[in-house]
């Protein structure tokens, strides 16, 4: 198993970098142990690992919501998009007003905000639902709404915490395709948490495997399939082989 960090494909300065980050919560829970990796623009790093190993904690540290107890985390805090594990929509706002929220809080002018919101609503396929309230949406629609909210600001660093866990296979495929298109056009630095190995391989330029708590990086796989990636990629032998390797690694980390 390759466990040493590979050099970024492009020699650009990383936008997000973890250096020997550890996290122990005040109650003594040791969530992360000595985690180091960089994400440069145009890199999309997926993290897979057993439940409770510290994946969400990793993203919270990256966003500055939680402070690590050891090591350093450097990131451009001004341009972070963060899609939480839960949709976290405000129940008193319609879909449109929810999607506007981040831009509104950043003080984006009304006209620009409205135009971008419309654009993003089309992008995540929520047209026709703009005036519904969150309680009228399905789980998958809520999640798309949550992704859309972050998209409006065109972040340079994009953190996704299992965004598509509650979405059916077909929608998930569509959302993956949209995410790929977006990644291709925006060239943000992405970190993507998922429980689906094939999703991780399909979307990423690199997949990291974490061990059970305390979360440590136990596997590191560069994914070199060229972009733009097409759906057929999922059925290629090389793709299946890579998924198998990562899966075996993940099981090893479990034990």
């Amino acid at each position: 198993m390759p466990t040493t960090a590979t050099k970024p494909e492009r020699s650009e300065i990383p936008r997000l970098s973890f250096d020997r980050v550890s996290m122990t919560f005040p109650d003594g829970t040791h969530a992360l142990d000595d985690v180091s990796f960089d994400v440069a623009p145009g890199q999309f790093v997926s993290v897979v690992g057993p439940s409770g190993c510290g994946k969400s904690t990793l993203l919270r540290i990256a966003s500055g919501l939680t402070r690590q107890t050891d090591g350093t985390c450097e990131v451009d805090r001004d341009s972070i998009g963060y899609v939480f594990q839960d949709p976290t929509l405000l129940p008193w706002r319609t879909v449109r007003r929810n999607i506007e929220l981040n831009a509104e809080l950043h003080g984006m002018p009304k006209a620009e905000r409205a135009a971008k919101t419309e654009e993003v609503i089309r992008l995540v396929n929520l047209s026709g639902h703009e005036d519904k309230y969150p309680k009228q949406l399905s789980g998958g629609m809520k999640m798309r709404c949550s992704v859309a909210r972050s998209l409006v600001l065109r972040p340079k660093v994009f953190l996704f915490d299992e965004p598509f866990g509650a979405v059916d296979e077909i929608t998930r495929g569509n959302l993956n395709a949209e995410l790929l298109r977006l990644f291709h056009s925006e060239q943000f630095a992405g970190v993507f948490i998922t429980h689906s190995i094939s999703e991780a391989v399909y979307l990423s330029t690199r997949v990291l495997v974490m061990s059970a708590r305390p979360g440590r990086i136990v596997g590191d796989y560069p994914i070199s399939f060229p972009f733009p990636r097409v759906d057929e990629l999922r059925f290629e032998p090389a793709f299946a082989e890579l998924c198998g390797q990562i899966s075996a690694d993940l099981k090893g980390g479990h034990a």
Binding site: I80, T88, L90, N102
Partner: peptide
């Protein structure tokens, strides 16, 4: 909600 507060924190509210 705590996560809603986090959301507002991220957006520098």
């Amino acid at each position: 909600d705590r996560l809603h507060h986090d959301l507002f924190t991220l957006n520098r509210a």
